[in-house]
Design a protein around this nucleic acid. Sequence first.
DNA 1: TGGTAAAGTCAACAACGCTGACTTAAAAAT
DNA 2: ATTTTTAAGTCAGCGTTGTTGACTTTACCA
Lengths: 165, 165
Amino acid sequence: MADGPGGETLLFLTDEHLRKGIEAMFFAYRGFTADPDRILEDYGYGRAHHRAIHFIHRTPGTTVNNLLSILGVTKQSLNRVLRTLIEDELVESRVGQRDRRERHLHLTPKGEALEQALSDAQRARMRLAFRSAGPEAVAGFRTVLEAMMDPDLRRHYQSVVERGQ
Amino acid sequence: MADGPGGETLLFLTDEHLRKGIEAMFFAYRGFTADPDRILEDYGYGRAHHRAIHFIHRTPGTTVNNLLSILGVTKQSLNRVLRTLIEDELVESRVGQRDRRERHLHLTPKGEALEQALSDAQRARMRLAFRSAGPEAVAGFRTVLEAMMDPDLRRHYQSVVERGQ
DNA sequence: TGGTAAAGTCAACAACGCTGACTTAAAAAT
DNA sequence: ATTTTTAAGTCAGCGTTGTTGACTTTACCA
C-alpha cells in the first residue's frame, strides 16, 4: 500500500489516477465547447470570438490591454477578432474618459443576445453535469481546477469569484 | 432560498455558480496544456501531435480509424500529423495481421521517450493539484468531468478507466 | 467479380495563434 | 516644451490544425 510521507494513503496520486485525470480533462473540454461551437458556426465565428464576448460581458468597460492579459493572446490576434465583432455591431469601443488612449469595450444589445445564447447552451450542459454530480462533487471539481491554474490566470479567475459573491 | 422541485437546496446550480464553473474550465485548461506545449515547441510539434502520441501510447496497436474516432478529427487532419511522426520515427505503422488493410500504430522507443516527457510534465501539475485538493475533491472533479462529456466520448474515457483497474 | 472498407493523398480554404515593423494619439516624464 | 512611453491599431507573412471534396490503392467479403 502506497502511503505518503504524512502517513496518509495517497492512492489517488498514482500515475494511473493522474492519467485518468488527464483524459477526463481532454474529453470533458470537448463537451464543454461543443454546444457553443455549434452556435458560433451559424455566425461564422470561432472560439476566439466566444472568448472575447464572454469576457467583455463579464467585465463591461474592460480595456483592450486588460482583455489581452486575460485571454493571453497577442494584440494582433485579438484585434482580428475584435474588429469583426465591432463591424458586426456586437461590440462597442468607447474612448476612455480618464485616459483618452484607452478603449473601453462593451457588448451592444445584439452582442448581449449572442452572449446569452452561447452562455445558455454552455450553462445548460454545466447544469446537467452539476446536478447529476451533486454539490460535494461540484465543490471538488472547482477546488481541483483552481489548483491546476497558473497563478497569473488564477488571479483573473479569483476576481470573478469575488465579484460574484 | 432557491429550492428545487425535489425540495433540496440547489444553490450550487445558480447561474453565478455555473458561470464560475465555466471560467474554471477555461483557465484550468490553459494550465493543463501549458507544460506540454513548452516541450512540444522544441520539437516543432503542436497539440495535435501530443494527442496522437498520447492515445497511441494508451492503446498500442490502435488502428487509424479507431484513433480518428477518439480524436474526433478528419482523416486528412490526422494524416498530416501522423505522417510527420512516422517520418521522424516516433510512431511505427504496422500492416494488420488479421486484416491487411488496417495499419496498427505503435510508439517507437524515441516516441515513448517523448510521451514520457510530455506525460511527466502534465502529471506533475496534476499531482500538485490533486495533492493540494485532496482525495474527495479529486473524486468530485472526476465525477463532474465525466458528466460533462458527450456520451460518445465518455465511452472512450470509460474504456481507459476499465483498462486501468 | 463487384461492392465496400481502410488508408492515404492532393488541393484549397478558414480560424487563430505567432513575429516583426510601423503609425497615431495621448499621457507622462524630463 | 520637448522627449519618451504607453495604448491601440494596422500590414504583412507564416505555422498549426481544423475543414470539404475528389481521388487512388489495397484488401476484404459476399
